[in-house]
Design a binder for these strands. Structure first.
Length: 231
DNA sequence: GCGACAG
DNA sequence: ATCTTGTCGC
């Protein structure tokens, strides 16, 4: 098994990572509309860690956006490239996720990430980072709140409330299942918030989390387990 | 200054 | 993220 090495020149400290983040942020596109919900392809990406063994496993699962059937899967295993620092999560996941995406033959279409895009302290979370680096439209669907305030959305599926930070709307708390904790949706790159939420609802016909992230989550866990066995 | 804080 | 059994419910 090939272990993805950390790229040469990868940020080694927080200050450098923040500087890189600022530079990439200049290339972020918010105005452009990605594909409509339910059309084309959607790709879920996720990673699993084993800090003890210094391993990260990433998975990319491409789905047909209309039928939600799996079109293709890819994984990659690498070395942990950065410690966990709230706000700098992307520097921990990006190298291995890019390797997994690079192993796909299919066009990924829209990237659905486990985390934030604009709803990030510097308005540039994992989803935006991956979007800018790949040039693909992307959205972030997180399971937990971060640095913003919001009101509880109504209990019906589809109900939502704005995520507000520094007086700006940076995303939405969106109820994907009636009476169940909402997910936190934000724009990653080249997609509007309206459309990001429409995609999220299309991807949650049955569970709170998008089918994309559910597939990617189970796949990267399996990949990590195999990597452990091989080490 | 202190605490909180995606995965 | 990860450490972790059983258990309640559809």
């Amino acid at each position: 098994m090939t272990i993805i090495e950390i790229p040469a020149g990868w940020p080694a400290d927080e200050d450098t990572a923040r500087a890189v983040q600022e530079e990439l942020r200049e290339r972020l596109v918010t105005a452009e509309e990605g594909p409509a919900a339910g059309t084309g392809r959607v790709t879920g990406v996720d990673v699993a860690y084993d800090d003890e063994r210094d391993l990260v496993a990433a998975a990319a699962v491409v789905l047909d956006a209309r039928t939600l059937e799996v079109v293709e899967e890819a994984t990659a295993v690498g070395r942990v490239s950065f410690p966990y620092v709230p706000g700098l999560l992307a520097f921990r996941e990006v190298p291995t996720v890019l390797a997994a995406l690079g192993r796909l033959a299919a066009d990924p279409g829209l990237l659905v990430c486990d985390g934030y895009g604009l709803a990030h302290p510097r308005r540039f979370g994992l989803a935006s980072h991956l979007g800018v680096v790949t040039g693909l439209p992307s959205i972030g669907v997180a399971k937990n709140p971060f640095t913003f305030t919001y009101e509880q959305p109504g209990t019906d599926r589809g109900a939502f409330a704005d995520l507000v930070a520094e007086g700006e709307t940076v995303g939405r708390a969106l109820r994907t299942r009636a009476g169940v904790k909402p997910v936190f949706v934000s724009v990653g790159h080249r997609v509007s918030l309206e459309r990001a939420c429409a995609h999220t609802l299309h991807l949650t016909p049955r569970y709170r989390l998008p089918e994309t992230t559910r597939h990617a989550d189970s796949l990267c866990r399996r990949a990590l387990a195999e990597a452990r066995a091989a080490e």
